[in-house]
């Protein structure tokens, strides 16, 4: 059985990949995917720590909650991306400046 530290490191790496991806990529779809990666890094951490507390399911339950919230969020996010695409013919976030000025 691998130690908890490995999971924490993996989770940290995933979170960092997601965060950097969110910051540097201009494609909204990729940004959404980056957010998913970050959320899943957190999920991984929750499930891993849950193993340390035998008989308790709080961490896993939390992970399920997050998955459900994610699904809803993606549905809304994709809808926004779709309507953005209809208006601007692009999914690049730096061109989404409808609110500017």
């Amino acid at each position: 059985m691998t130690g908890i530290a490995n999971y924490v490191v993996l989770s940290g790496v995933l979170f960092a990949i997601g965060g950097i991806g969110f910051l540097v990529r201009r494609n909204v779809l990729v940004a959404l995917m980056s957010i998913e990666i970050m959320l899943n890094a957190v999920n991984l951490l929750l499930v891993a720590f849950n193993r340390l507390h035998a008989g308790e399911l709080t961490g896993q339950l939390f992970a399920f909650f997050i998955i459900a919230a994610e699904a809803a969020e993606v549905a809304v996010g994709l809808a926004i991306v779709l309507s953005l695409f209809r208006i601007k013919r692009t999914v690049r976030s730096d061109e989404a400046d409808l609110l500017k000025n």
Partner: peptide, 13 residues
Amino acid sequence: QNGVVHVYATAMV
């Protein structure tokens, strides 16, 4: 409030 999404994201981070 400059309308650039990336600036907002950076500020958030």
